[in-house]
Design a protein around this nucleic acid. Structure first.
Length: 552
RNA sequence: CUGCCCGUAGCUCAACUGGAUAGAGCAACGGCCUUCUAAGCCGUAGGUUACAGGUUCGAUUCCUGUCGGGCAGGCCA
């Protein structure tokens, strides 16, 4: 429909000797019904070129447009907007899209089946997932779903650090527990992990349990001195736990990549060698430095420490080189904003490889911190992890649907306050139930009427003339735009906002009008409309990874 | 000190990437269940969009500055 309007405008402009590119023409969906189904500000944009008053220009354009097929009328409004009002034929065409496409309504093919990788969560296996990982999981998973709906071939990837100082630290912490050294004892490792979960690992280790990780089967020897075995077992243990937490959060991955693999295959060494050869390094203070300042950083960064090991971003560069070589022309990394300083370094490292990787590759979506509140107080600890609130605590307390919804319904770059009491309440306080309730209500009505989906005719559409009905039809037709937009903007929260609005429109309609009326035609028209609403709510919930219950 | 993010109703957040009268929910107040699910609806009240400039037909949105909050700036990740 938008395309059609753009063409109408383009042709009309052509007639008055203004030739426009299609992407210069902007079509809006007005907030208020009074302003029609669509509107264009084109007259305001070109009035200067014509040296005429915008309203005058709009008037001319309206007269030049041959709009009768789908529109009842065009109106000149405000400073020079042109408002388009659909006729029955236009409305029927929009509503029938839902019946024709069903679960595919809202999707498009703009991705053209190109590959796209979304990397998210990527938590290190040093402890249970926390609420911040939850936000990353919700946003990343929804992004993946949205990009799939926009026609991309999406790979979900999880990268984790299974080597290096922190992992060593983990092993030492477990070993200390095995030796019955208490976390507050002075012999406990200085930077050790002190949560109760370390004890769980130690207990399982001493029971000689066996665990499978992404790569291999790990059997605990029970030997307190075998640090290597303790480390492998601890990583496998925590990876298993994280995967369980993610599964409970309905989050799944296609590929797991291990940092250690880039040491094993010598990619890291080779990356450093190449960057050196390309002349982007120098030695100073016994360390090897990367000239990141040549790539927009405010100071150079150490690549290889004086002890010979690499700093954390070097494996990251090797990893991203690997992503590029796997053919991902487009990669989106979802991370916490506290790691934003790595962006410049990773991109700089990739540029220094001189292998034709675009400067702004990969893309990033960063989310800000989450603060958890309960009883009006900030919650900072959990029993198991000690120093932070775990994802599993939240999912257990408020459920997967509510947790996902809260974490994804806010702009990623705003800090968010997660109010446990609000998310827990099974009342009108809770927006996720509000949306699901609309779905369940419609299901109940359709079930009673034994309504089956079918296309709606123009004469039935004419029976849907109330404000509520017009509003709902307009809202439904906006869904594909929202799906597209949330992909373009990498912002899943648009879907959440949209669903709240759609559910609100429906609840108002429900209270205002009865659907199961005696007039057969009227009943059929109304049921068709609410059937379409149900389909769109379901499709939207699916994009957020939420259930669409039929009974509540 | 420097960089990034944020600042909208008492609280939690929107505002379709510059549009028309800045919207929801919670909290407050007043209504609606013998009628398809009241986890719902309707109404009242609540705003100088942190502040000051600028850009233009038009700014919550873009630019500059100030103030306030968060996060980074380690040979930690």
């Amino acid at each position: 429909m938008k395309k059609l309007i753009i063409n109408l405008i383009k042709n009309a402009c052509h007639k008055i000797s203004i030739d426009l590119n299609e992407n210069e023409i902007q079509i809006d969906r007005p907030k208020s019904l009074e302003h029609g189904d669509y509107s264009s500000n084109i007259a305001l944009q070109i009035s200067k070129r014509l040296k005429k008053n915008p309203r005058e220009v709009a008037d001319i354009l309206i007269n030049e447009m041959d709009y009768q097929t789908y529109f009842e009328k065009l109106e000149l409004a405000g400073p020079g907007f042109i408002n388009f009002f659909l006729n029955s034929s236009g409305k029927a065409s929009q509503l029938n899209d839902v019946f024709d496409l069903k679960e595919d309504f809202g999707k498009n093919k703009t991705g053209n089946n190109q590959t796209l990788q979304v990397e998210f969560v990527s938590a290190n296996p040093t402890g249970p997932l926390h609420i911040g990982h939850g936000r990353g999981a919700a946003i990343g998973d929804c992004l993946a779903r949205i990009f799939q709906a926009n026609g991309w071939d999406v790979t979900r990837e999880f990268y984790y650090n299974d080597a290096g100082a922190q992992i060593n630290n983990l092993a030492l912490s477990v070993q200390a527990r095995l030796k019955n050294i208490d976390p507050d004892h002075e012999d406990f490792p200085q930077d050790g992990y002190r949560g109760d979960y370390i004890q769980d690992i130690a207990t399982a280790y001493s029971q000689k349990k066996s665990l499978s990780s992404e790569l291999e089967e790990v059997v605990a020897s029970g030997n307190v001195e075998d640090l290597k075995n303790i480390q492998q077992f601890s990583v496998a243990f925590l990876r298993n736990e994280q995967n369980q937490d993610l599964a409970n959060f309905r989050t799944f991955f296609d590929v797991f990549t291990l940092e250690s693999s880039f040491y094993v295959n010598q990619d890291i060494e080779n990356v450093v060698k190449t960057i050196k050869q390309n002349g982007f390094t120098y030695e100073s203070d016994d360390a090897l430095w990367l000239k990141t300042t040549e790539f927009n950083d405010d100071k150079d960064r150490v690549m290889q420490k004086s002890d010979g090991t690499y700093t954390y971003f070097v494996p990251d560069v090797a990893y991203h080189k690997n992503k590029w070589e796997r053919g991902f022309k487009r990669v989106i990394n979802e991370q916490g904003a506290d790691h934003h300083s790595t962006i410049t370094r990773v991109r700089a490292g990739l540029q220094a490889l001189n292998m034709g990787i675009p400067q702004d590759w990969p893309e990033y979506v960063l989310h800000q911190m989450v603060t958890v509140m309960k009883n009006g107080q900030e919650v900072k600890i959990s029993k198991r992890a000690g120093s932070y609130v775990t994802l599993s605590d939240l999912v257990n307390q408020v459920g997967c649907d509510a947790t996902r919804f809260f974490l994804v319904s806010r702009k990623a770059d705003s800090q968010l306050i997660f109010d446990i009491d609000l998310a827990q309440s099974k009342s009108n306080d809770n927006p996720v139930y509000y949306i699901q309730y609309a779905h369940a209500r419609i299901f109940a009505v359709l079930d009673q009427a034994k309504f089956k989906s079918s296309n709606i005719s123009e004469c039935l559409i004419e029976l849907l003339s109330s404000n509520h009905e017009s509003q709902l039809m307009k809202k439904i037709s906006e869904f594909p735009d929202i799906v597209f937009l949330s992909g373009e903007e990498k912002s899943p929260h648009y879907i959440a906002t949209y669903l709240k609005e759609l559910a609100g429109d429906f609840h108002s309609y429900y209270n205002d009008s009865k659907f199961l009326v005696d007039d057969v035609n009227l009943q059929s028209a109304r049921l068709s409309l609410v059937f379409a609403v149900k389909q769109v709510i379901k499709n939207g919930l699916e994009l957020l990874g939420l259930s669409a219950p039929e009974k509540m």
